[in-house]
Amino acid sequence: MTTTTTARAARDAVKAATPLPGAWRVGLSRGGLEIKQFFRDRTQVAFTLAFPVVFLILLSSIFGEEIEEANISVAQLFVPSMMGSGLLASSFQSLGTSIAHERENRSLRRLRGTPMPPAAYFLGKVWLVLLTGVVETALLLVVGVVGYGLEIPTDPVRLFHLLWIMLLGMSAGALLGVAISSVPRTGAGASAVVILPFTILQFVSGVYIPISSLPDWMIQVGSLFPLKWMCQGLRGVFLPDAAKVLEPAGDWEFGRVVLVLAAWCVGGLLLCLTTFRWKSRTDG
C-alpha cells in the first residue's frame, strides 16, 4: 500500500514539475485543428474559396470592355479588387460569424475552462485566416493570369507591397472580425450583423463597380474603411502605372494605404480588448 502511494505521489510530482506547453505551441496545434474542421465542411470551403472566383467571372463577363486610357481590361481591374474582398471575407466575415456561433454553443466557455492559454485560441484562428487568404488569392491569380491576361509582378518593390498589404489587411480584418463577433446576441443573428454591412462595403469600396464610376460621396464613405485601401493597394501591385488615372487621387498612395490599414489594426485590437466575451449574454 505504501509503495503504491509513493509511486502515485512520484507521478504527481513529475506532472507538477512538467511545464505546460506555451501559447505558441498550443496555438499551432489549435491552428491545425481549425484548418481540419474548415476543410471537412465542403459547403463552407466551396463558398469561401469559390465565391470570389465566381463573382470575378460574372463581373468580367458583364463588363468586358477595354479601358483605353489605362491600357487594361475591366476584367484585369476587377482581379485585384476581388483579391482584397476575398482577403477581408476570409478574415473579418469568417471570424465574425464563426466566433459568434462558437460563443452561442458554449464552445468558447468550455475552452476558457481548460488550461489552454487564451492567446492560443486566437493564434489558431490566425493560422486559418492566413491559409484561406493565401489559397483564395492564389486561385484568383490563376484565373486572372490564365483567363484575363493579368501579369504577375516580378519587381521586388511590388512584391514587398503585396506582402505587407496582405498581412496588414488580414490582420485588420481578423481583429475587427473578433470584435464584431460580440455584437450579435445569437449565432443566427451573426450573418445579418456581419455579412450585410460587408456586402454594402464591397459596393462603396469599388469591388463590384470600378471606383472611377462611383459618386464622390460613396468614395468618401468607402475611404473610411480598410477594404477600399486594400483594393487600391493591390491594384497598384498588379496593374500598370498607367492605371493610376482610374484612382480618385490619380495615384496608388501606398503611404496612405499603410497608415490606414495600420490604424485599423490598432483600432481593431483596442476593440477586441474591450469588447470580447467568452460567454454569451444569456450565460450571464
Score class of each variant (00 low, 15 high):
residue 141 L to N: 03
residue 146 V to T: 04
residue 147 G to P: 04
residue 149 G to M: 08
residue 149 G to N: 06
residue 150 L to P: 09
residue 154 T to A: 15
residue 155 D to F: 11
residue 155 D to W: 13
residue 156 P to Q: 09
residue 156 P to M: 05
residue 156 P to D: 14
residue 160 F to D: 13
residue 161 H to L: 04
residue 162 L to P: 10
residue 162 L to N: 09
residue 163 L to C: 12
residue 164 W to Q: 07
residue 165 I to K: 07
residue 165 I to P: 15
residue 165 I to D: 05
residue 167 L to P: 10
residue 167 L to V: 14
residue 168 L to Y: 01
residue 169 G to W: 05
residue 170 M to F: 05
residue 171 S to N: 07
residue 171 S to R: 01
residue 172 A to G: 03
residue 172 A to S: 04
residue 174 A to K: 06
residue 175 L to H: 03
residue 175 L to E: 00
residue 176 L to P: 02
residue 178 V to H: 04
residue 178 V to F: 08
residue 182 S to G: 13
residue 183 V to I: 10
residue 183 V to N: 13
residue 184 P to S: 13
residue 185 R to A: 14
residue 185 R to H: 10
residue 186 T to E: 15
residue 187 G to K: 01
residue 188 A to I: 13
residue 188 A to L: 12
residue 188 A to D: 14
residue 188 A to T: 13
residue 188 A to C: 08
residue 189 G to A: 08
residue 189 G to M: 04
residue 189 G to W: 07
residue 190 A to E: 11
residue 193 V to K: 12
residue 193 V to C: 15
residue 193 V to M: 10
residue 194 V to W: 00
residue 194 V to R: 12
residue 198 F to E: 01
residue 200 I to R: 09
residue 202 Q to C: 07
residue 202 Q to T: 02
residue 206 G to H: 03
residue 206 G to P: 00
residue 210 P to T: 05
residue 210 P to V: 03
residue 211 I to A: 12
residue 212 S to A: 14
residue 212 S to C: 09
residue 214 L to F: 03
residue 216 D to P: 11
residue 217 W to V: 00
residue 219 I to T: 06
residue 219 I to V: 13
residue 222 G to L: 00
residue 222 G to T: 01
residue 223 S to K: 00
residue 223 S to W: 00
residue 223 S to Y: 00
residue 226 P to Q: 01
residue 228 K to M: 03
residue 228 K to S: 02
residue 231 C to N: 14
residue 231 C to T: 11
residue 235 R to H: 06
residue 237 V to I: 02
residue 238 F to H: 13
residue 239 L to Y: 04
residue 240 P to T: 10
residue 242 A to D: 14
residue 245 V to N: 04
residue 245 V to A: 12
residue 246 L to H: 02
residue 251 D to Y: 07
residue 252 W to F: 07
residue 253 E to G: 10
residue 255 G to M: 05
residue 257 V to D: 06
residue 260 V to F: 02
residue 260 V to I: 03
residue 260 V to S: 02
residue 261 L to K: 12
residue 261 L to C: 09
residue 262 A to T: 15
residue 262 A to I: 03
